[in-house]
Design a protein around this nucleic acid. Structure first.
Length: 211
DNA sequence: TGCCCTGCCCTCTTACATCA
DNA sequence: TTGATGTAAGAGGGCAGGGC
């Protein structure tokens, strides 16, 4: 083996330790180049399979007890395995295999649940983002209106101040609360729009769509 | 300390049972 | 009859612990 190949092998080994699932999904091709996986031969009522006995479904009772034990503890110490096997009239190897398969099924289910949760959370976040962006747009519009209003009042005050000495009072009145009410952020509409979850628009770029 | 053996585990795969 | 699905079990490989 060359040094390069050794390095590659070490890297793959490292990856397989860090991401066992991922590695096993991507590795077969590479692994297959040098050492293809052995395929099991068909064994039609073969000599080795459970003493020639045909498969095999475990009885409901056996499954129930196994499930009960799995519910208590997913791992199977050899003592418990032997005890279970004799209780169920099974080979300890069968009990071990059942637990192995059960753990695999449990893991798959867990992954599916995890995915489902994350998807729901993601959809919520996307919705909230749209709501907030919509709110920002609304506030910007209000700010724009207010600026115009201030400008109008300023012009009016300028006109009056040339005739009256009490212009400062007027200008103060002009800045009085009436505006504040307009700027309230509560009670924004619920007509939130929704952008598909994959249609991300960063920053305020999306506003251009509505201008 | 390094090597080998053993047992257990994980993952992928195959074979078979069952059902629509 | 056939395709889809579920599951028991085989196979390959990793890892840890014990003996030498």
């Amino acid at each position: 083996m060359t040094t390069q190949m050794n390095e590659l092998h070490d890297q793959m080994a490292l990856i397989s330790q860090m991401y066992p699932g991922v590695y096993s999904q991507i590795a077969p091709q590479q692994a297959g180049e040098s050492k293809p996986r052995r395929r099991r031969k068909k064994n039609k009522g073969g000599e080795n399979s459970l003493s020639g006995a045909k498969k095999r479904k475990l009885s409901q009772e056996q499954v129930n007890l196994l499930e009960l034990n799995f519910g208590n503890e997913h791992k199977l110490e050899s003592e418990r395995k032997d005890r279970l096997a004799s209780e169920l009239g099974l080979d300890p190897r069968q009990v071990a295999v059942w637990f192995q398969n059960r753990r695999a099924r449990w893991k798959n289910k867990k992954l599916e649940e995890e995915y489902s949760k994350m998807k729901t959370a993601h959809e919520g976040v996307v919705l909230e983002k749209c709501r907030l962006e919509s709110e920002v747009l609304k506030l910007k519009e209000q700010l724009c209106e207010a600026t115009k209003e201030i400008q109008r009042l300023g012009e009016r005050v300028d006109g009056v101040s040339s005739n009256s000495p009490s212009s400062s009072v007027l200008s103060m009145e002009a800045m009085d609360p009436p505006f504040l009410g307009e700027f309230g952020v509560e009670g924004y509409d619920q007509d939130v729009f929704y952008i598909g979850e994959n249609s991300y628009i960063h920053g305020m770029e999306w506003m251009n769509l509505y201008i």
